[in-house]
Design a protein around this nucleic acid. Structure first.
Lengths: 199, 199, 199, 199
DNA sequence: TATGAATGAGCTTTCATTCAT
DNA sequence: GATGAATGAAAGCTCATTCAT
């Protein structure tokens, strides 16, 4: 619905990658801690309290919740994105690279309580977050996917956006349900993806 | 001078409205409509308004939200459950039966906005709902799965509970994102499931 | 199409009201006024309205109703507590001191509509209030009582807690029943207390 | 405020003393049971459920809550009233009679959870109840009081209405506070009452 | 006459967001 | 810039009371 490119620019402009203010870092640490405990939907107050600042400060630096979430996980998302090409170069096969990357992504999503649901576009005011995630990781996933599919000589049954969002969804609730094994499900999805002639 | 309590009573005694007798079906229809529009977490007030009844009426019939959701979707869940054995009997192969059933399930989940997330155990007060879904559909899914796996001579890489919840998760947000194709993802997951030797 | 949650946010964002900074004293004055009118069980809304603030403000400063009641009457309770030793020193006899103090206490309870019932432990959420009252005033009452009893050479037939709570109870409803004379009843109770050899 | 005599007549007319309908008795038994458990302010629904009837039936027979309470305790109140003259005749001294009667009354009030507060005029819609209690028991108390005061040659420091209401108040909350000894307090009040020259 | 479904006012509580200091 | 008090919309839930059946 929103233009992915311009959305991303806006976000990037707001954040100024690579130059986190000294005090901003404290906010991010606190937010990260709270997100793990209470999920990304945690009350702003809780985060402010943890950081030892007023809520106004949070709003000043991160006007919307997604802005904050993006900032908190920027490093990890970045690491995830950068792992793509590297894994492709290092792995024995493209499929192995894809599987390894996907496992990395799953670990990230599952570890961060409630983050997974952010891949959905309609969670509470998640515009910027969704945009950032999609904009940064879809291309990475796409190239891994393409390589893996080429190696098994199969046409892509679905695009990288769907794969990413599907994985995101599969990871929802994984942290709080011990019977639920998101990791295996995701690998099974990849298996299905690489199987020739899926209906 | 007058006591607050008695004041209230007096005021309450003023109310003089007609109360058209309504059956439970009207409530369910209204709730179903609202669920499609606003999801299963829609405010009780909104449902009551749509049904043209007071909130008390909703609470009388369905003390908890899951009670209402279960009632609303009971027929469809039942239909889904009953379709399992029938498809197994009618389909050319067990795999075809599984795929057909899964498609049915997906259609159900995707159509009903927000219902999918009910497969998670930790949504707001979803005990009864979760229990009902899992209790009714896991066995159905299990038998279909077993049959399909036998036909491809593969050990089950994951149990029916995980499959069901995985599918449920894959369907989250499908209704509001036209780029997202839950149906295909689910079929790919099934493909992965039936592929021998998945890591 | 739009999600309920984000709809709400948008609406909330519309509010554009001025927020005059108010001190806690204004709240207390308003609460005191409402308490006199409607008793200590008055709806929070009523108090907020009287104070010209939002309900949230009340809850911020006084999370529970007793917190508020305690704050409102703290000065007077304190005054009552401090009057004990002073009266003992100034009065002609310990009995006179006890009677004077008790009269003071009665006046306080009777004046504040509904406050008396707070001496009971089981009124709606009155933990803090009850604890405060009992903790602050029982010792004061106890020393007055002891002195008075000593002067008439009688063993205490009942402890200060019972005396205090009994007085509190005697004052219930005194403000709204002109035929009911709590003051005299309390003095009669004191007389009985100081009478030797009560069965 | 209301005319005691006519009020009483109205109540008596509603009840038709001595001719409890067969089914009405079931209601009274149920209400009595609920009152003991949850107090006289128990939800109407609870009483109806216990009686196995609809709430409408309760309202038909007893339009207001006090009507019901009066009916429930009519026998006991009657017994209490009748005990007055008898005790006066049987006891060694008028004071003994007064103390015995008061003890009876206290036992009645304390046993019935929450009933005591009904002696206040302003509890939730307790008009009829208050009127009945006062109208029936004040005269009884008055004669006992007069006799006892005559025997000690003292003028009445306070009237029977105040004594009754004072006792009622002293009994509030007695059931739920083991430290609180209403019985002793009431006897102390009587002692004070019979002490010559109370200020 | 009995029933109990329906009503809806009203209460408490939470929390995103604003803005005076 | 930072703060956090203030705001008030919302939502869940309870229960006295009415009245169609």
């Amino acid at each position: 619905m929103a233009d992915t490119q311009s959305e991303q620019s806006r976000v990037a402009g707001t954040q100024q990658v690579g130059r986190p203010r000294r005090d901003q870092q404290g906010l991010l640490d606190a937010a990260a801690a709270v997100f793990v405990t209470s999920g990304v939907e945690a009350p702003v107050r809780e985060i402010a309290a943890k950081a030892g600042v007023g809520v106004g400060t949070i709003y000043r630096h991160f006007p919307t919740r997604p802005d904050l979430v993006v900032a908190v996980y920027r490093h990890q998302v970045e690491a995830c994105a950068e792992a793509g090409p590297r894994l492709l170069a290092e792995s024995a096969t493209p499929e192995a690279a894809l599987r390894a990357w996907v496992a990395l992504f799953v670990e990230f999503l599952v570890t961060k309580h409630g983050l997974a649901s952010a891949l959905q576009g309609d969670s509470a005011g998640s515009d910027a977050l969704h945009t950032y995630f999609v904009g940064r990781l879809v291309p990475v996933c796409d190239s891994l996917l393409e390589a893996a599919l080429q190696s098994v000589d199969t046409a892509p049954p679905i695009d990288a956006y769907n794969v990413l969002k599907g994985i995101g969804n599969l990871c929802i609730g994984a942290a709080s349900d011990t019977r639920y094994d998101a990791t295996t499900l995701v690998q099974l999805l990849i298996s299905g993806l690489l199987t020739r002639g899926t209906p």
